[in-house]
Nucleic acid binder design. Structure first.
Length: 425
RNA sequence: GUGGCUAUAGCUUAGUGGCAAAGCGCCGGGUUGUGGUCCCGGUGACGAGGGUCCGAUUCCCUCUAGCCACCCCA
């Protein structure tokens, strides 16, 4: 390491090193399989969007937009932002490309980085990744249940089985107003018993007082009016149906009347997935979602009900590691090709290709000259066979097949090497 | 954004106001062309900048990053 200034990864970002790629491979694979199993089509949207998309979609008053968004102006003075979540971009694409003309409901999924300017700590980054499942074009509660099913299916296949679903209904634009009023009335009568933060919340985003963690507020919260009591018939029915479907799926849930999500576009069902943690640690949210029937219209599309969810890749990987979930590492090569001497090195490059063409998985270390070092590497990579191609063999057009386990070797003509290898593998 | 704790080699850790150790890893060697074990050697670090001091990796300050809590969430 030189004395020059060492450039570190920007705060809250990190490198995914080779040793961790196995986790990512697994997650991508399982996500792809899950998407295929449930009929989701892949979509990828840009990392950069106009600020207004998020301001309108997620909501101006939300923490995500107000405090955590990476916003900047381009040289052309466009006001853009790095996406802080995936749903808004997918919804925008849905409208922009007229995807409502595909058969509905349309199921889309996506995975990629998101950006939030926050104070990082374990499981919290400024650049992190989400997996997103969205269903557009149906208000049927069966889809709320199905998308939750998808999340459980995915997490189970990943190896996380103790996931707990928290679910609540926050009503629609009709009934939520009534509830908000009731809540405000209640809090107004109890102003003295709540924390300063909640006083601010009451003005900005009243529902959020419900998930205040301040001890002082817990009494007030526990006695507060509950949303489900204020749901209109439609919302109540929708909520009940969802729960029925979940019962049918044998997905157990916790009715969390304090669950309110930090994005404005949600209505009716909202839910989060928690994983219990050891001892006194509170459970970890792996992701969440909900219904957002108004978003498409809000963004300028036609009335399109939708439901979706996002899962946090980093947290999932963190839990996989913590729980010792096995992921398969690099596959051992079948053959390790050793070369000795200039002629063998040159001809070896070609031989390597021939092995590949015959679908034999092969490794090499052409830059190493000593047979010892090459064999050592072959052993470390757990190759089944070492193909020793030395000066003499290169002249004779032969090669030595060495079985690594037994140490038995045999000289074969190059013309027969593929056949001989296949016999042994 | 606020507060607390932390920073020694690629990794895990010792240690000291006076030349900074070990294990693992990586590279090489233990006669001419044969791996694993073993033996030997090499590689390589005090996060950055400033201050106090004859001398700072050690004490102080600032910065950066990580962790924890708040906040919020994935």
């Amino acid at each position: 390491m030189s004395k020059k200034k060492i450039i570190q990864a920007s705060k809250g970002t990190y490198d995914i090193l080779p040793q961790d790629q196995t986790y990512w491979d697994k997650i991508r694979k399982v996500a792809q399989d899950t998407a295929a199993d449930f009929g989701f089509l892949r979509i990828d949207t840009p990392l950069i969007e106009e600020q207004e998309l998020f301001a309108r979609g997620i909501g101006l008053g939300t923490d995500i937009v107000e405090k955590e968004m990476y916003s900047f102006s381009t040289k052309g003075r466009d006001k853009v932002a790095l996406r802080p979540e995936l749903t808004a971009g997918v919804a925008r694409a849905f409208i922009e490309h007229g995807l409502f003309s595909l058969s509905q409901p349309l199921k889309l999924w996506s995975v990629g980085p998101i950006f939030r300017y926050e104070q990082p700590q374990a499981g919290r980054y400024r650049q992190s990744h989400q997996i997103d499942f969205e269903v557009f074009g149906s208000a049927d509660a069966v889809l709320d249940a199905q998308i939750i099913q998808v999340a459980f299916w995915f997490l189970k296949k990943i190896g996380l089985k103790e996931v707990v679903l928290h679910i609540n209904s926050i009503g629609c634009k009709d009934c939520r107003g009534l509830y908000r009023k009731a809540l405000l009335d209640y809090y107004r009568r109890n102003t003295k018993k709540i924390c300063p933060d909640c006083k601010v919340r009451l003005k900005k985003n009243p529902l959020r007082v419900l998930d205040c963690k301040n001890e002082k507020c817990q009494d007030v919260i526990s006695q507060a009016p509950v949303m489900v009591d204020y749901l209109c018939d439609g919302c109540k029915e929708h909520f009940k149906e969802t729960l029925d479907y979940l019962d049918e799926l044998e997905i157990s849930y916790y009715l969390d009347s304090h669950l309110v999500r930090g994005l404005d576009y949600y209505n009716r069902n909202v839910f989060e997935f928690f994983l219990p943690q050891q001892e006194d640690k509170k459970s970890l949210a792996l992701g969440g979602g909900g219904r957002y029937d108004g978003l498409i219209k809000l963004l300028g599309g036609k009335e399109t009900p939708a439901v979706g969810l996002a899962l946090g890749v980093e947290r999932i990987i963190g839990e996989m590691k913590k729980r010792g979930v096995k992921v398969s590492g690099r596959a051992a090569p079948e053959v390790f090709l050793l070369q000795l001497g200039n002629l063998a090195k040159r001809k070896g490059l070609k031989l390597y290709e021939e092995l590949l063409r015959n679908k034999i998985s092969v490794a090499e270390s052409f830059s190493r000259d000593s047979i010892k070092a090459q064999l050592k590497l072959a052993d470390k990579l757990q190759a089944k066979i070492a193909l020793i191609f030395g000066q003499q063999e290169a002249l004779d057009d032969t090669t030595i097949i060495r079985e690594m386990d037994s140490g038995v070797q045999e000289i074969v003509p190059l013309s027969k090497v593929i056949k001989e290898l296949k016999k042994r593998l």
